[in-house]
Design a protein around this nucleic acid. Sequence first.
DNA 1: CCTCCCTGTTTCGCCAAGTGAAATCGCGTT
DNA 2: AACGCGATTTCACTTGGCGAAACAGGGAGG
Lengths: 258, 258
Amino acid sequence: MPYTISAVDRALALLEALAENPGLSVTELAKVSGNTKSLVFRLIFTLEQRGYVIKDPATRTYTLGYRPLFLASSAQDNVALIKAAAPFLDDLARSSGQHVNLLVRDGVHSLCVALRTALDSGRLYAQVGRRGPLHAGGGPKILLAFAPREVRDEVLAGPLRAFTPNTITDPAELAARLAAIRETGRNESRGDLDVNAFSFASAIHDAEGEVIAAVSCAGRLDRLPAGSEPRLRDLVDEAASRISEAMGWRQRFNAAVG
Amino acid sequence: MPYTISAVDRALALLEALAENPGLSVTELAKVSGNTKSLVFRLIFTLEQRGYVIKDPATRTYTLGYRPLFLASSAQDNVALIKAAAPFLDDLARSSGQHVNLLVRDGVHSLCVALRTALDSGRLYAQVGRRGPLHAGGGPKILLAFAPREVRDEVLAGPLRAFTPNTITDPAELAARLAAIRETGRNESRGDLDVNAFSFASAIHDAEGEVIAAVSCAGRLDRLPAGSEPRLRDLVDEAASRISEAMGWRQRFNAAVG
DNA sequence: CCTCCCTGTTTCGCCAAGTGAAATCGCGTT
DNA sequence: AACGCGATTTCACTTGGCGAAACAGGGAGG
């Protein structure tokens, strides 16, 4: 906080509020973001000038603009993790024939930062930049398992939304699952985020041994070939190791045997 | 300018400078952006706190972070043009069997805001959020043709980079081409941006009749089936009309006959 | 091994610029 | 035609953004 420029911080917060609540007016944004109308008006004016938001003149309502697309494109091309992972994600998509996701944690959300889509599998919920929960899905639970205690506590305390009947909504059960994940660095889920989806995931480490991301192979549960599980598990784990190595991980920090 | 908050404006400018020059240090960023080291340090600190940039501790160097991906995802889902165009882009991709692009103008650049990729065609240069020139390519020249005079003058004055031997680099020739495009609202290019690429493009209008975007069908020149040109031209033009209508255009502002 | 130098980080004090409150404007409603 | 609501605009008050300059620390060169 000592060096934070509050005007900038408020502007970014407003941008995020708008991303989460598209189509709001000045007054509504002021309410949502907890700022005065004057301030919101000036912040959004500044953001609009630079193409970060677009005003619909008819409704005097705002949405994000085109400039974020440019930033995202640059981010995808230059962030070390995404660059390093790219070839291995390609390999994994090819060898597994399934959708492949690269996820990181963003606060109490999972965030998809790269994906490869399988040709045959149906329409996909995933999209680069899309946020999801941390307590459901193959990859997300890995991110949660290795998140700082504050984050884990917050998620375990908060309401655990049931996306499907299979979503773990009992904090104790979830905590046990996370402990198991910390032992193996792997996780798999079936129908806990989407009724008809499976996901095999493994943790990615950086040079310090910290878990910084998760790769997963995912697809429709009703199209998961019988007996293919061991192979998918191994392919994902192999990809995770390769990506970790590319990030400077040296296996020094092996997980204890489960 | 009256309502611009300069701290915010500077922060956004810095973010863009970083998008264009990934991997710079504080001092280098200060130089590139024309700010003092102190200011850059505080701005980037604020941006980093919110996940807009990531610091590589080893090199003390910065790149964009993950947060822009989230913003871009929201933008793609909520910007009126992109939402309205989506189904027609899908149709066009299916019926044409080619790559489909939706472009808008961002200053003196073209910006890809949506795309559909053909399965068979080779690797694609395009990516959502990627910027290109205005004076080369099928869609970009449409955007330039209908841009405000200042923009046209700036581009015509500036150096016209030759991406291939077919790129128009003579201002007079380009001006004539733009005039022709203003008559028809259509354009096509062959090998002027990429030696082995073609592009058929049409202008998209909004409710006020302004040209706000261009759709294009593009692919490898050596795979363009002989005699398919008229059909592609019509498919693209049809898609442009549909999207324009979805944006509230009512054909009142028909272009004069060429 | 020591020194210099370059770059990131921190401090300090001034005052421009960001801020909230309140007034004004403009439009759609009653 | 008056009303009401939300978007702009004005205004006066500091806050907090800012540049300059000091400090720190690590790597290159001697």
